[in-house]
Deep mutational scan, measured.
Amino acid sequence: KTRWTREEDEKLKKLVEQNGTDDWKVIANYLPNRTDVQCQHRWQKVL
Rank of each mutant, 00 (worst) to 15 (best):
E8W: 00
T5L: 07
R42N: 04
K13L: 09
K11F: 04
Y30W: 14
D9M: 02
R3I: 11
K1S: 05
L31A: 01
G20C: 03
V37L: 12
P32G: 12
E17W: 09
R3C: 15
T35N: 04
V46S: 10
V37K: 12
T21Q: 12
V26P: 05
C39P: 01
K45L: 09
R3K: 13
Q38C: 14
T21N: 08
D36I: 08
R6I: 15
P32F: 07
P32A: 10
K45S: 11
I27Q: 01
P32W: 04
E8T: 02
N29P: 04
R42Q: 12
Q38G: 07
G20T: 05
W43F: 09
D23K: 08
K45H: 13
N29V: 10
L31D: 01
V26N: 13
E7F: 08
W43T: 03
V46E: 13
V26K: 11
L15R: 05
D22H: 15
L12W: 04
A28V: 03
W43A: 14
K25H: 11
D9L: 03
L12V: 01
W4K: 02
K13R: 10
K25S: 13
T2Q: 15
C39T: 03
E17N: 14
W24T: 00
H41A: 14
N29G: 14
L47W: 11
K13T: 06
R6Y: 11
H41R: 12
L15F: 09
L47V: 12
W24K: 02
Q44A: 11
G20I: 04
V37A: 12
D23I: 03
I27A: 02
W24Y: 03
T2G: 06
Q38R: 01
N29C: 10
A28W: 01
D9K: 03
E10R: 10
W24R: 01
N29F: 10
V16A: 05
G20K: 06
L47S: 09
K11N: 07
N19M: 14
L15C: 06
D36W: 11
E7Q: 12
R34C: 03
W4N: 00
K11A: 04
V37W: 11
Y30N: 15
L47P: 06
E10N: 15
L12F: 15
Q44W: 07
D23S: 13
L15Y: 08
V37Q: 10
N29Q: 11
Q44I: 10
D23L: 04
L15P: 00
R6W: 07
N19K: 08
D36H: 11
L47C: 12
D36M: 09
T21L: 04
W43Q: 04
Q18M: 07
V26G: 11
L31Y: 11
L12G: 00
L31S: 02
R6K: 13
V26W: 10
G20E: 10
P32T: 12
V16Y: 02
K13P: 01
D9Y: 01
Q38P: 00
K14W: 05
V16F: 00
R6D: 09
K11E: 07
R3T: 12
V46W: 11
K1D: 04
D22C: 06
K45E: 13
K45T: 12
R3F: 15
C39H: 00
E8V: 02
Q38I: 05
Q18F: 05
T5C: 06
W24G: 00
E17A: 14
G20N: 05
T2F: 04
T35P: 05
E17V: 10
L31F: 15
L15E: 05
G20H: 07
K45M: 09
K13W: 06
V26R: 13
W4M: 02
K13I: 07
D23R: 10
R6P: 13
P32R: 10
T21F: 04
E17M: 05
Q40T: 04
E10I: 03
L15D: 01
T21Y: 11
T2D: 08
D36V: 09
L31V: 08
K11Q: 04
Y30F: 11
G20S: 10
Q44N: 14
P32E: 15
R34S: 05
K11S: 08
N29R: 13
H41Q: 14
E17S: 05
Q44H: 07
T2M: 15
Q44L: 14
V26S: 14
L15A: 15
V46I: 10
K25A: 08
G20W: 04
G20A: 06
K45C: 10
Q18I: 14
K11D: 05
R3E: 14
Q40Y: 08
E17G: 13
D22P: 10
W43C: 07
K25D: 07
Q38D: 15
K25E: 09
K14M: 15
E7T: 10
Q18W: 08
G20L: 05
W43G: 05
W4S: 02
W24N: 01
E17Q: 05
W4Q: 00
P32S: 10
L47T: 07
W43S: 06
N29S: 14
W24L: 01
K25Q: 14
L15G: 06
K13A: 12
W24I: 00
E10P: 00
K14G: 11
E7P: 05
E8I: 00
P32Y: 05
E10G: 08
W4A: 01
A28H: 02
I27R: 01
R6E: 07
D23N: 14
D22T: 13
K14N: 14
E10L: 13
E10D: 14
D23M: 09
K14V: 09
D9T: 07
H41V: 12
R42Y: 07
V16C: 08
Q38E: 13
E17D: 06
E10S: 14
K45V: 06
Y30D: 13
N29D: 06
K25M: 10
R6Q: 14
N19P: 02
P32I: 07
E10H: 11
T2N: 03
E17K: 09
D9G: 03
Q44G: 11
H41K: 14
E10M: 14
N33I: 04
V37P: 03
W4V: 02
R3M: 15
V26T: 12
V46T: 08
T5I: 06
D22Q: 07
R6G: 08
D36E: 09
R3L: 15
K1E: 05
K1A: 12
R3H: 15
Q38L: 04
E8P: 00
W43E: 03
Y30R: 13
Q40P: 00
D22K: 11
W43V: 06
T35S: 03
K1W: 02
G20Q: 09
R42A: 03
I27T: 04
R34M: 11
R6S: 15
G20V: 04
Q38H: 11
V37H: 15
K13Y: 14
R42E: 08
K45R: 11
W43R: 02
L12S: 06
L31W: 05
V26D: 10
E7N: 09
H41Y: 14
L15H: 08
V16I: 04
T21P: 07
Y30P: 04
E7R: 08
V46H: 14
Q38F: 00
D36L: 06
Q40K: 07
D23H: 08
L47K: 04
Q44P: 06
Q44M: 11
T35I: 06
G20F: 07
E8R: 00
T5G: 04
G20R: 04
K1C: 02
R3S: 14
K11T: 05
C39Y: 01
R6T: 14
T2A: 06
P32V: 10
N29H: 15
Q44V: 12
Y30H: 13
L47F: 09
N19S: 08
G20Y: 02
K14D: 13
K14Y: 07
K1N: 12
W24P: 01
D23F: 03
T5W: 01
Q40N: 05
V46K: 07
V26A: 12
A28Q: 06
D9N: 05
R42T: 02
E7M: 10
Q38W: 03
D23E: 07
D9H: 01
Q44T: 12
V16G: 00
L31M: 10
L15I: 13
E8D: 11
R3W: 15
V46Q: 13
L15S: 10
R6H: 13
L15K: 05
N19C: 15
V37R: 11
K13H: 07
C39R: 00
V16E: 00
Q18P: 02
E17F: 12
R3V: 13
E10A: 09
G20M: 06
A28F: 00
K14S: 12
R6F: 13
R42C: 02
Q38Y: 01
H41C: 10
Y30M: 13
N19W: 15
C39E: 01
R42I: 02
R42V: 02
V37T: 12
T35G: 04
T5N: 07
I27L: 05
Q18A: 13
T2W: 07
D23Q: 11
R6V: 11
E8Y: 01
L15N: 04
K11G: 05
R34E: 01
V26Y: 13
W24D: 00
Q40H: 12
Q18C: 10
R34F: 07
E17L: 13
D22M: 07
N33D: 09
D22E: 08
H41L: 13
T21M: 13
K13N: 03
E7V: 09
L31I: 09
T21R: 05
I27N: 02
C39A: 08
V26H: 13
D9C: 00
Y30S: 14
W4F: 06
Q40E: 15
W24M: 02
W43P: 03
E7G: 08
R42G: 02
V16T: 03
I27E: 01
I27D: 01
